[in-house]
Simulated assay, not measured.
Amino acid sequence: MKKLLLFIVAALFFIQIKAQTHTIEIHSQNRTASLLMSPAEYASWKNNDDFNNSVIREALFQDIYQKFDDDFDFIFLILNEDTRPNNLPFGQLMQVSNTVTGIVISIYDETANYGSAGKLQAVMHLTQKDYLRNGPALHELMHNWGNFGIPTESVNAPGTNLNSFNFQPHWGFTGGNTPGQLGGFAQASLIDNGGGSYTVNEFGPNANGGNAIPYNELELYLMGMTPVSSVSNFDVFTDITSLSINLPTFDFEASTRTTYTPASLVALLGARVPNVAITQKDFKLLTITLTDTPLTPAEFDAADVFSEEFGRNASDGWSSYNFWEATNDLGTIETGNL
Rank of each mutant, 00 (worst) to 15 (best):
N193E: 11
P262W: 10
V9Q: 06
G175P: 14
N328G: 11
Q66A: 07
A11W: 07
L141T: 02
G91R: 05
D304P: 00
Y221M: 02
A186K: 15
G118M: 10
G224V: 11
V231Y: 11
A59Y: 00
R31C: 10
V305M: 08
D69H: 03
K281A: 01
M37C: 04
S164H: 07
F310D: 10
S38H: 12
N48G: 00
F74N: 02
D301I: 05
F74D: 03
G194E: 10
A11V: 13
T296F: 06
G180Q: 05
R84E: 13
R84F: 01
R257S: 12
L35P: 00
M225E: 10
E309S: 08
D63L: 01
S28L: 05
S230V: 12
A267D: 15
Q280A: 11
P294L: 10
P214C: 09
T152C: 07
I245H: 09
I56W: 04
V9Y: 05
M1K: 07
D50K: 10
D70M: 03
L247V: 13
S230M: 14
A298Y: 03
L265R: 11
K46S: 02
A188M: 08
S315L: 12
A186C: 10
L247H: 10
V276H: 14
N48I: 01
G224P: 14
H170W: 10
W45E: 02
A263M: 09
S242N: 15
S44F: 01
V155I: 15
F203K: 15
F90E: 14
A271L: 03
D292M: 02
A303Y: 05
M37F: 14
D70K: 04
T332L: 05
T111M: 07
M94I: 08
E41T: 09
T279A: 13
N30D: 12
Y215V: 04
A10E: 07
D50T: 04
T111E: 06
I213W: 03
I107V: 15
Q95L: 12
S320C: 09
E308R: 12
E217N: 11
K18R: 12
L243T: 11
L295Y: 06
N98P: 07
A207T: 09
G183A: 09
T259M: 12
D82S: 13
A277H: 06
T127S: 10
T101G: 06
T152L: 04
Y42E: 04
Q187E: 15
Q20V: 02
F90Q: 14
P169A: 06
V96S: 02
G196R: 05
W145P: 01
T127K: 00
L190T: 08
L6S: 11
S97K: 09
A112M: 08
P297E: 02
N156K: 13
F51Q: 02
